[in-house]
């Protein structure tokens, strides 16, 4: 048996050292290694796509089948919800008309550059400790690091890690996600800090007494990363009394995501009296690079 031979030991030692070395490299030069990771993912995952779509579809059909058994209950529930929706629709139409009249009166210019690209979710993070999804659009489609991602209704997360044909979205539920937000109607600013749970808690809230469950949470646009006014969710209080956000986006079924093109606020060119560059300007410059 040449199993414990010196050559094998040498190979083993070299492998262990290089793996640990790579980990240290990741610790020291994180952005570079993460870019490398994005490229590896970009090479591997799209190759699996042909099999992933049908398998995912099949598993979802099996899951849905269980809900078909309750279809009568669901039907009555949907009818009831539909009636409520019609009331809301009427209210929304009236508000829309009023809003249009007011905008017209004020001669407001809406930002026409806030358009979006839609991508399909290819894969999730594959780990219970990370909340992210992989989209099938990337630098090739003009995606830029930091852009906001929404499903049809609410904010889902931000782009972090762009490769040629894929981009990773860090979800708002991830433990590393921090989103500056405004709570309406009180106008308090806060941070929606993800913590790996379905409803991320609210941090840095100045006066919790002004905030009540049911208040709307929208992005504030502070820091220039996200455009302002994207719906994030509604305030709820957990049994411990801590304020959390019930996210509006349907995280159970993320399939199509909109990536909002956002080039940040124009940086002020006259810098004489400005202490530091606007963070969005840095982002903007990186995007150009």
């Amino acid at each position: 048996m040449d199993y414990g031979g010196p050559l094998r030991r040498l190979i083993f030692a070299v492998l262990v050292l290089s793996l640990f070395g790579f980990f240290l490299l990741w610790r020291i030069d994180n952005p570079r290694v993460e870019r490398f990771r994005a490229q590896v993912t970009n090479k591997v995952v799209p190759n699996m796509e042909w099999a992933m779509a049908p398998v995912t579809g099949f598993i979802n059909v099996v899951r849905d089948f269980q809900s078909y058994q309750r279809i009568a209950d669901q039907n009555t529930e949907l009818r009831r919800e539909l009636r409520q929706m019609q009331v809301w629709k009427e209210a929304a139409l009236q508000l829309e008309q009023e809003n249009a009249r007011l905008l017209d009166l004020n001669n407001v210019q809406l930002d026409s550059r806030l358009t979006y690209i839609t991508g399909v979710v290819l894969a999730d993070s594959g780990s219970p400790f990370r909340q992210s999804v992989l989209l099938n659009i990337g630098a090739h489609d003009g995606i830029v690091e930091g852009w906001a991602t929404m499903d049809g209704i609410g904010l889902v997360g931000r782009i972090s890690g762009v490769a040629k044909n894929t981009a990773r979205v860090i979800l708002a539920t991830d433990a590393s996600s921090r989103i500056p937000a405004i709570i309406q109607p009180s106008g308090q600013t806060a941070i929606v800090a993800g913590d790996n749970s379905a409803a991320p808690p609210i941090d840095f809230l100045e006066n919790p007494d002004l905030v009540r469950p049911g208040d709307r949470v929208v992005s504030s646009g502070d820091g220039g990363v996200f455009p302002a006014g994207l719906l994030i969710g509604q305030i709820t209080a957990d049994p411990g009394g801590r304020l959390r956000v019930r996210l509006s986006a349907d995280y159970e079924r993320l399939k199509f995501l909109r990536v909002l093109r956002h080039y940040g606020a124009e940086p002020v060119s006259d810098t004489a009296n400005i202490l530091s560059p606007v963070p969005s300007a840095i982002l903007h410059n990186e995007a150009i690079k």
Binding site: A123, D124, P128, L134, A198, E252, L254
Partner: peptide, 10 residues
């Protein structure tokens, strides 16, 4: 692991 079946935490 990578199948996008579990996008919600928990």
């Amino acid at each position: 692991h990578l199948l996008p079946l579990q996008t919600a935490p928990g």
